[in-house]
Amino acid sequence: MRAQAGKTQTISARKKRERHSVNLWCWLFMSLTLIFYIVFQGYPIICSIQYSLLDWSGLTSSADFAGLGNYLELINDSLFWNAFINSFKYTLLLVPCQLVVSLILAYILNNDRMKGRVVYRTMFFLPVITTASIVGIIMIFIFGVSGPVNALLQTLHIIDEPVQFLSDGSIALYTVVGISVWKDCGTYMIYWLAGLSGVSKDLYEAAAIDGANRRQTFFHIVLPLIVPIGGVIAILCAINSLKVFDIVKTMTEGGPYYATDVIGTFVYRQAFSSEMGMPRLGYASAAAILFGITVIVIGIILNIAKAKLNSKSQI
């Protein structure tokens, strides 16, 4: 009996040691990421929170404590709310378009019988690896009044007068969204392809035997299976689009007259430039923090929605 108890104790101690060992390895592998996260993410976030409480240009050594003054000022800043709303408009326009376009591309390019699909995949992925500033400069020319898009539309007699894609405040944001979809759809196409590769070939064959065409197979078999992955892609796409900066900065700088001003460009403008006087790094930090909190809340909501979608698909 005693020997049995001793043996149990020994096993339990060994299991404990093993568990410790596993934990230690886990921490060891995570430590590098953690260190980099703390240095390059955590520390700047904490600094931003600190700066947001200061009346500081970011250029001088003197900074005054402003408490919540910057936040209170932001609440009454109509240009902040304009940028805030534009960021969400951009996201609401972009995410569905991005998901649909990239899914269509992925579904087409997932066909094993398609010749040259690797080449097509590469072609659609190329804009992703192109620098946003280069894309911005090229697109200003392409969508300019005397650019090729207007020339084509006029040649085809679709329009009489050139469309001011980026100079007209009422359509500039849509143009930016369209260009962003083109630029980033390659990334989301890869995500979708990963999801589609998880759908068993047997299901396609079974559907074909049952007489389902490609469209029916997609809507009734494939789509329900990849919806959970779609949730993850939607979250990533939403978060990325809320953080949009580079493409807007290079193409419109938030103009014309703040029509495409998003939080990224608003923060940048406040932090680094000024029409008169010094820039306001403290104010810019407050805007970034306030918006960051909003994004976190939305992220939580989307995660909850994704969890519900997952549980539904499991049922």
């Binding site: 300019g144 009044v145 005397s146 050139p162 001011q164 980026l166 100079s167 193409m251 419109t252 014309p256």
Partner: peptide
């Protein structure tokens, strides 16, 4: 009369 690309 203003060049349409002026804003950009």
């Amino acid at each position: 009369s203003i060049h349409p690309d002026t804003v950009n």
